[in-house]
Write a protein that binds this DNA or RNA. Structure first.
Lengths: 223, 223
DNA sequence: CTGTGTGAACCCCTTCACAGCG
DNA sequence: CGCTGTGAAGGGGTTCACACAG
């Protein structure tokens, strides 16, 4: 087995486009596994889910050789490899910062534990919320207690669901608490020191993309 | 003013990467406008928010010439142009399908109306929920009533927040009801006929991207 | 003979550099 | 003189095509 590792230390070599697709492949493989499929070729995977077969193979080639020539990939085996590549061995503990409607819904979202991400606590600066729980039973703490909690409870990821104006300051607090991975739900740009990863889930950007599609389509009809 | 329009009918010419950035530029411009800034150059915009100045100009060049040479762009003027390009003239009415925790939180999320997207109703197949309202007062209807509602209320976008296993069937219903724009929150691939636009907001993909970053970083330290 | 792994071709997006306008 | 708008160069990601393994 040959794994490409161009630089000795952990440099940024594999594109995020690739890792995103790995997640999606994993989702597809789980789908096939529950359907009882044992083996799959890159071609049939591509056909079923709308990918390009060569791209699947290229994406996997960054990490090793997982297929059997003439046969394809073991569905369960490849899924296990992808989980290992993505670092999904043990459940990853998550803190949700911002205990508004969205934050509480995220803390209770059943999809997360199912995929190995466990929201352990909510944090907010409103003392009126502190001491309460989400519907699903996730406790709400004051944001001041984040650093101690991160250390004691082994939190790895911060999900930030606060208004856009407060995001930067909350992100700073998360970094100061030792977190190195942030998922930001607010429509705002966040700046963090090197080594910290931020991913933005900006729903307004997606909605405006849809709005553009609608506007364009209407225009086409008007012609 | 010269606008590039390579094909007569509404072909897919401008990349989604570009339109996503237009949304982000719009967010930045609003930020500057509330700060009282009247004029901005592509260079200062790029410096403040971490873009490339040439890219900003290229993105805008697809739609016209909005700047003044030697000066820059009118903050308010450019924002208005972007809103027009993205089709954000009147508020866009949205239906949220799936009245679980996530769906209700989305229906009540204050960020949407602020950006011109108004959740008008929730839809679910559970008759126990029908007739109730979200905390924010959005009424819940049975999914059967979607087609009539779309016509009568001028719904343009469906936000789908149901379990992954049901997404495709719900998307089919949305398309059948005449909707041409779908925002899917479930970790699943959706297939739709041509002319219909789907955007996926897959939080598990983002989380797994963060997990990969964490795994990689640990590995680098282990070296 | 089937399907992987991979170099090469291709294509699109990003970035550079500068002519030209205000 | 400053900054836009834009052709040209550069880089990265996707797709093709095939040698080769099972």
């Amino acid at each position: 087995m040959k794994v490409r590792n161009k630089k000795g230390s952990g440099a940024e070599q594999v594109s995020e486009l690739t890792t995103s697709r790995l997640s999606i492949y994993l989702r597809c493989l789980d789908h096939l596994a529950t359907a009882g499929v044992r083996t799959v070729s890159s071609q049939s995977l591509a056909a079923q889910f709308g990918f390009n077969a060569a791209q699947i193979r290229k994406d996997l080639a960054w990490f090793g050789e997982f297929g059997v020539r003439g046969v394809g990939y073991s569905v369960q085996g490849l899924a296990a490899h992808l989980r290992q590549i993505l670092g999904l061995g043990d459940p990853i503990r998550v803190a949700v910062i911002g205990a508004g409607n969205l934050g509480q819904a995220l803390a209770d979202y059943p999809g997360f534990p199912q995929y190995g991400f466990v929201p352990v606590a909510l944090f907010d600066r409103a003392t009126s919320k502190v001491g309460m729980h989400s519907k699903g039973g996730v406790p709400i703490f004051h944001i001041k207690r984040l650093p101690a909690f991160v250390r004691r409870e082994g939190i790895r990821i911060a999900m930030i669901a606060v208004p856009a104006a407060s995001v930067q300051q909350v992100a700073n607090a998360a970094v100061a608490a030792g977190l190195r991975a942030i998922l930001n739900f607010a429509p705002a740009t966040v700046t963090v020191p090197p080594g910290v990863k931020v991913k933005n889930v900006d729903v307004t950007v997606s909605l405006e993309g849809l709005a553009y599609h609608l506007a364009k389509t209407v225009h086409a009809k008007t012609n």
